[in-house]
Amino acid sequence: MSPTSTLSRDPYVKAPPFWRRSASVAGCIFLGAVLLVAAWSKSLDPLAFGEEVRAQGLDFLLSGEIVALLALALEYFLGTALLLAIRRRWVLWPSAALVAFFVFLTGRTWYLDAKGLLPEAAGCGCFGNLVQRTPAEAFWQDLLLMVPALALAFLTVERGGRPLVRLVLVGLATVAGTAFAWKAPELPLDDFATRLKPGVEIDQFCAGSSEEGMQVCMNAILPETQGRHLVVMTDLENKEFLGDMESLNELVWSGAGPRLWVLSSAEAEERFQFQFSHGATFEVLETPAPLMSPLYRTLPRSFLMEDGKVLETWSGMPPVKNFLAETETPKTSDQ
């Protein structure tokens, strides 16, 4: 993929033909857009990206979160530079390295999956490995989306003078994108960053595919969907959740208000321990991690639904006291 011609201000060097420059600019812009979209989607939930960095074993020098932020900064830098058609060697070669690295990662995951070496998703084991796109699909999608565009971008390489205005824009976009990713966990972006938002039907929340041997949707997890239901997604050891246990119990005892369900992807032993330790008056429903994780950035997260449609969402625990205030019947008994 070495450059076949260069653009220079030297009048004695013949400029490459128009089609080649156009194809190069188009490839550059396309690849830049792909990188920026990827960076943006990861910036919405940098903690999940940090987890992925850890899962890939890329946190050997710095923590997963720091590596994630540095990777995002690099992606913003190269993505913006390519989008602005800066076809310099110091942009194209790092971009090629980044693309090669992405393809390597997806290829390695495909290999590990084929050898049965990937760990199973947390949960009861009912569903095997639920995947939205198979490792093979991920590999081929990355390869076909990025490599041809990268090859086109290399058709012509710019030389001479510094594109100062464009560099300033690249710098600003990189700083802004990285700062956004840094602060994103504190911003109220859950409805925007996840698939769980008001108005969505819960039977649209699915993981896996029938073609791969298993698809499970939220309507199979919840025993019923008609009527009003309050759903809390949580880790069973989450302090915020455990702190609200008595309010949740009171809501159940009140007999009024929405029906309460708690979703968790905890392993069987953890659920068993919880069941016999905390005196919960509600059912904890085992939910596979691949089904639940696209619905939150941090746990706990909660939502109210009616007849299978999400009415309201909360980052954290729901305002149980408000629901209790709505109910007319006081707590019936003290155990």
Partner: peptide
């Protein structure tokens, strides 16, 4: 690959599978 999975046979020949949801 997961449970529950239903395998449907008509006249002894598998005609399809249904699983999960």
């Amino acid at each position: 690959r997961g449970v529950p999975t239903a395998v449907v046979y008509v006249d002894g020949v598998e005609v399809g599978r249904l699983n999960g949801s």
